[in-house]
Write a protein that binds this DNA or RNA. Structure first.
Lengths: 197, 197
DNA sequence: TTCGCTTGTTGACGAATCGTCAATAGTGGT
DNA sequence: ACCACTATTGACGATTCGTCAACAAGCGAA
């Protein structure tokens, strides 16, 4: 598959393998294929994968982490704008990301891939990061449990709504964005009733 | 662990093993422990587990199915009530179920347990069933993609909100129920704008 | 009670996969 | 051209999966 130079710098090889892993796991899922076969598809030896990622789960985890880090970076809301606007930017960027990288991201979130608690922590980092960003922008530094649950739930709505969108299609990005933003209103109501107490 | 009679009827043994599996997988997750060890904990031989469930995934899947079937049965909305009321019943029963069986259900949904696409289909059955029930009660027999995405997203909000609730606590069932019901309003708006076209 | 048949149950086995490690072979520096 | 360094390999031991022929617990009949 590779056909490039047999010996690469550590960094280049690592990125190449992660890029491959992203494609591979999105398509085949975690542990659907033995490491021997995965390595062969990647054009390297099994030993090399173990050398770079420790074990099978390690390879999968690093791949997932690369994607989640990307999502977190992309959805960073602009700092110099009022909440409403920054919020819309955040949602828009997320939907845009899903539109482009949809299949891979969905395969990830849906758990079409395998997972254990560690992998789930990675995925949860995306949700918690989004939640904290929203709380911070709203100036809620000590939110109640209910507030956190409300935002967390909304983030899940966005995530899974997008996942479903990737599968079924049939709606424009704009429609999705509007849906997500209007869905936030009840959550915002909870947060504000919070603030008054 | 067992200490009961060594030889049981097929049905009794099967239910005993499923009850054990529910506890075990909620605590240890899928594939965290070899089948030998699982069997030992269950007080039976490894061969018996394979006899009843075919393979490791089979045992896990049947366990998950038992739980998801339970959820689907419990959240069946009453047929003889108007939408608003039936809807509230549905949400209330779900929250009640999570309150009682929370840890097991959450371990399942969160994927603190492992999963592959087959397992995920099982979990998705719960969401899709809820979605279809709502659509049916509303008389929407040919919903647009956006409508389906909206409801699916809302179901995910409920699911993950409850999961978070199980972990963090700090809110009353009533608060959760109200949150979920008010969160449905924007979704309902989408559905109704649909209906007019 | 004893025999015998049905079937729930077992544990040792072969196959497959994981993860390791000493050996190999590119690559850059001198 | 040589050397030192390290990226890379593939065979190996260990672990786990899933199978299967043998075992034995219960029940009915004699």
């Amino acid at each position: 598959m590779d056909l490039g130079p047999r010996r690469m710098t550590t960094e280049a090889r690592r990125e190449q393998l992660l890029a491959f892993g992203r494609q591979h796991f999105a398509e085949h899922g975690y542990e659907a294929m033995p490491m021997d076969a995965i390595a062969e598809r990647a054009g390297v030896s099994k030993g090399l994968l173990y050398h770079y990622f420790g074990n099978q789960r390690g390879f999968y985890m690093e791949t997932v982490r690369a994607v989640t880090d990307e999502v977190i970076a992309i959805t960073e809301p602009p700092a110099d704008q009022p909440f409403d606007q920054a919020f819309r930017v955040m949602v828009t960027r997320f939907v845009g990301y899903v539109q482009e990288q949809g299949e891979i991201y969905t395969a990830l979130v849906r758990g079409g891939l395998g997972s254990d608690s560690e992998v789930n922590e990675l995925l949860d980092r995306v949700r918690v990061t989004s939640m904290n960003r929203i709380l911070e922008r709203l100036g809620l530094h000590q939110p109640s449990a209910l507030s956190r649950i409300a935002i967390y739930g909304w983030v899940s709505l966005v995530e899974n709504g997008c996942a479903e969108w990737t599968v079924t299609g049939g709606a424009s990005p704009r429609q999705l964005i509007d849906l997500f933003i209007s869905s936030f209103q009840p959550v915002l109501d909870v947060l504000q009733s919070e603030q008054c107490v």
